[in-house]
Nucleic acid binder design. Sequence first.
DNA 1: CGCGTTTGACCTGCGC
DNA 2: GCGCAGGTCAAACGCG
Length: 201
Amino acid sequence: MNMPQNPNPNFTFYSDENFVNPFMDTYDFTNLMFDFDEGVNTTNNGLIEEETSSPTSMVSSETFTGESGGSGNAITTLSRNESTGSKEVETKEMGHRVAFRTRSKIDVMDDGYKWRKYGKKSVKNNTNKRNYYKCSSESCMVKKRVERDGDDAAYVITTYEGVHNHESPSHVYYNDMVLSYDHGNWNQHSLRQSIQISPPP
DNA sequence: CGCGTTTGACCTGCGC
DNA sequence: GCGCAGGTCAAACGCG
């Protein structure tokens, strides 16, 4: 299963009743945590949560501006709210950060991009190891962190950092597949509504 | 042989 | 300045 995902700046996932889970039975998007722009504030810490308030509030979703991907200037501000209060507003030169929590039996979702694992670390308050991945495309600096939820190992927290400056290796395949389902059983219209392709800035 | 994974060491930022 | 925690590096290793 190869699908382009939200790290690509051209895609935005919406989770509504029409949402077609691109990972079908394998994944259950229970918490989507997006913060594409500074104007997006959905909860205290900028997360979009679909279920009841989750114990994953320490997973913050922050906004950076990508150094690539055509999103323009490289400096934005980010603010991080934690349980004890707000921290200073920081300035960084990085890309988008997108975190989402999924219920999955497997740790690493195949999002269509090719990832190289470069680190593994045990983190505080989590008995499970955190894995670090880089996009294996030479000029692409997108990173991905994958860890099991410390409170519920059935959930996987995936954090993407940065924006791909190239298309997914499976992008062409995916487009062909979607178009070929024009009158098929699969609800491709819903999918295309769910995955909104936004115009370049 | 090339590529990806593993894993301990090292680096860096932050709080005290 | 020190210690801790998170993030990254790179050599060793395994697999196709």
